[in-house]
Amino acid sequence: MTQGFDAATASAENVRAPEPRVPGPLGVVDRAMNGLNHVILVLGGIALVVACGVLSYSVLSRHVWNEATDWQDETAVFLIVGATFLSAAGVQARRGHVAIEAVSGLLPERANRARLLVADVISLAFVAFFAWKSWMLLHEAWVDGQTSQSTWGPPLWIPYSLMAVGMSLLTFQFVLQILEAVIYGPKLAGWGAQKIGMGADLTKNLPADDARPVPADTRP
């Protein structure tokens, strides 16, 4: 599928060089964000397991105790949606949102850096807008007391708030990465590790975790 970029992420874990350390106050923020992202990934993973449990319980309760199953599906939906949006920043921190790297090998160094910065800024614009509208949606749902249209009918501020917080964290992650790129160069912004992409394997026959040449003037 986007095809098992799972395998791509998997291999990235195996061959990945240690993260370069971002210096200065930005580094403190960066490490705090990494810590938060890790906590979210762990909680998100637990949420997925709980969702599995809830759906399995649904099967049991219907067949063994002949009970109605009306809250299970939606609980699972909330857990999975929440896990997805909240971990979006953690995935971005490792440049895990798949991009097509078809032209990186064709462009001169400087143009390539400019292209990556533009790509990040456009992504930032989109996720910031999405985050903003998510907060508006949350506000509406809260004020109107909107509920989901199911028998169980839980309030919609629950998933909306997860979406709003998740997209805000993602926005923040992009801001952080753009600042790092501008101040300290591409490698610290994670560009050096941007290994995923459908053309990445062809543009240059370089090790997968470092498909793009890192400029010599990368300051530590």
Binding site: D6, E13, V49, A83, V91, R94
Partner: peptide, 19 residues
């Protein structure tokens, strides 16, 4: 043992679900 399984699942899922 479980942590790498869960984090890898979440990474792939999040990337995929956002797409």
């Amino acid at each position: 043992d479980i942590d790498p399984i869960l984090t890898a699942t979440l990474r792939e899922s999040t990337m995929l679900m956002l797409i």
